[in-house]
């Protein structure tokens, strides 16, 4: 039954509306307390928050901001995949691009979207995504060369800016990590490896192209 339900096109939108209603219920009960802080109203708010947050936790079905808090909870896979962006200069030389150029988006968010959607995109849509990546890479290159932070997240707080949940090491540290002239093309490659094999030999990573712009 759950399988049959999950295939229904109306289910996801309906759940989104239900989750909005759950949040609005929380706010409405809270405002009732704020208006007249009687014990009965306070208890109703507490009971609502407890019931909703515990139900979400136990079922592991999110209703953010009431959420499931699952983190690295599956068994670790023996094979991994990741991705890398490379910028190409006018001579055709490839330079790894620092994922900070995608900020404020975290690399894992972009990667998850890319793996799920890019393979199915039509050619013109792939070109728009490629153009976006090329613009981002070039803007990041220019910022690095001019001594500014590579990503936007450090604009105000510098190195004191809060890191993303998954901490990726920066690739670009000095202007010598990028070409002096602008990037003219960009390509995205999927990286795949066996975890134990790579433990023994760091070079055991296979690469396959996912996107190139201009194609």
């Amino acid at each position: 039954m759950i399988e049959a339900l999950s295939g229904q096109p109306w289910l996801r939108p309906a759940l989104d509306v239900a989750r909005l209603a759950a949040f609005l219920g929380f706010v409405a009960l809270g405002l009732a307390v704020a208006r007249r802080p009687e014990r009965r109203r306070v208890d109703r708010l507490i009971a609502y928050v407890m019931a909703l947050s515990v139900a979400v936790g136990l079922t592991q079905v999110e209703a953010w901001p009431f959420t499931n808090w699952a983190l690295v909870h599956s068994m670790a896979p023996s094979r991994m995949s990741s991705w890398e962006i490379e910028g190409l200069d006018a001579t055709g030389r490839a330079w790894p691009v620092d994922a900070r150029v995608l900020q404020p988006l975290a690399p894992e968010e972009f990667g998850s979207w890319m793996f799920a959607r890019v393979p199915g995109l039509p050619e013109d849509a792939r070109a728009r995504v490629g153009r976006f990546l090329l613009d981002r890479a070039e803007a990041g290159r220019q910022r690095l060369v001019s001594g500014q932070p590579v990503g936007g997240n450090e604009t105000l707080l510098g190195p004191l800016a809060a890191p993303f949940h998954f901490q990726q090491k920066p690739i670009w540290r000095a202007p010598s990590d990028v070409p002096a002239e602008p990037f003219v093309a960009v390509r995205v490659q999927v990286l795949e490896w066996d975890v134990e094999t790579r433990r023994r030999d760091e070079s055991q990573v296979t690469r396959r192209p996912l996107l190139r712009y201009p194609s």
Partner: peptide
């Protein structure tokens, strides 16, 4: 630490294709 977070809205439309009307309303 998330300077210009709203700029995500200006990302290519393809990246927003999976965000439906109900989710936007939510």
């Amino acid at each position: 630490s998330r300077f210009d977070l709203p700029s995500v809205l200006a990302f290519p439309a393809e990246m927003w294709a999976g965000v439906g009307a109900a989710r936007r309303a939510r």
